[in-house]
Simulated assay, not measured.
Amino acid sequence: MIRRHMFMSALAATVALSGCGGGNDSTATPTPTATPTPTPTASPTYASFPLTAPTEFYTFSAATSYTGDPATSAVTLGAANTETLSSRVRLATDTAIATGTYVMRENTEEARFCVPTGQTCTATLSANAVPANTEFVFRRDDTTTAGKFDQVEYLNNVVTAVSSTGVGPTSDTALALSRVSWANWWRGDSTAGQKRLAYTAWGFSTATSDMPTTGTVSYTSRMTGRLVSTSGTSTAINKVSGTVTTSVNFATGVVDMTFTLSTIPAGGGTPVAYANFTAQGAIPVGQNQWTGSFTNTSPLTGTLAGGFFGSQGEQVGVVFSASGTIGGAQQRLIGVVVGKK
């Protein structure tokens, strides 16, 4: 027992000496560990218009319908609605009017447009993609079913310029946009059948990580639309023009818009003052699109859906639809707004 006691005492002494660190200063400052420098996140890059290759796009869309012959009676108006970015209404654009194919698709309904160059789809190019035109327009009237037609109107900023033919993007600087465009599709089944309108905004959407989170931005905006109106036994279908102001507070997410709209007579001519609207929407946190509605000071009720395109939301696209009565006439209004900072 004495030997074991001596052994344990010696072991305790050894442990005690070890705990003293062999005489080293236990308060010495440790060598700091270097903090790695974070790798900066690269800013997203965006394609731009005019296109260099055929491309398919999902769209923001506004739609309405009517049934009957507007030339002889009051048509039956369908609902009007808007939809955020989706594949339900999508399109494909090409780069050359003379040889390209342009496709519009809503749900299961599809139309393909091209000028007669030996391709399987044909249409009349009723407005070419020349700098003087803000839109290029394809129109096709069925030769076997009376009143069956389809027409598509593309904002003229998507096609590549061809100097030898004068074809190229619009010279209207407010509409010569690099990230967002519009296309509008109007078609009918027959003279007395249903007709459908779809207005779309689309392009190169701002990445959610690239969305601004501070500041208020005003966008220089332009619009196009159509109004279907019935009164008594008559129907009027007019294109709509006007001025739009678009202001976005990226800190709060509030979007404010005002519209001063005019209708364009069916045969052309001086626009006729129509109505003024105000609207407001909200951008959800972390999103690049939004929804909203017309305020109660507007003469019609309706909704809007919009999104941002290009670097830091540099451009905006919005679709809208509205319904109601003005001056005793039943109304359906749809349209699209595009703009840039």
Rank of each mutant, 00 (worst) to 15 (best):
M6C: 07
F7W: 06
S9M: 12
A13E: 07
L17T: 11
C20T: 11
G21S: 10
G22W: 12
T33A: 12
T39N: 04
P44N: 01
S48A: 14
T55Q: 10
T55P: 05
T55R: 10
F57I: 01
F57P: 03
F60P: 01
S65A: 13
T76S: 15
A80H: 03
R88T: 12
A92M: 14
T95A: 05
A96K: 15
G100K: 06
V103G: 00
R105L: 10
P116M: 07
S126Q: 04
S126P: 00
A129I: 04
F138M: 01
R139L: 14
R139M: 12
D142H: 07
F149T: 08
L155A: 03
A161N: 08
T165Y: 14
P169S: 10
D172R: 04
T173E: 15
L175H: 05
R187G: 11
G193R: 08
S209W: 01
D210M: 04
G215Y: 09
M223W: 01
R226E: 15
S231F: 12
N238D: 14
G242S: 05
T243L: 09
V244P: 02
T245G: 12
V248T: 05
N249E: 05
T252G: 08
T252I: 05
T252L: 04
D256M: 10
D256R: 14
F259T: 01
T260Q: 13
A266K: 07
A266D: 12
G269F: 11
P271M: 02
N276S: 13
T278S: 13
V285G: 10
V285I: 14
G286I: 04
N288A: 13
T297M: 06
S298E: 04
T301Y: 09
Q315E: 14
V319S: 01
G327I: 00
G339K: 02
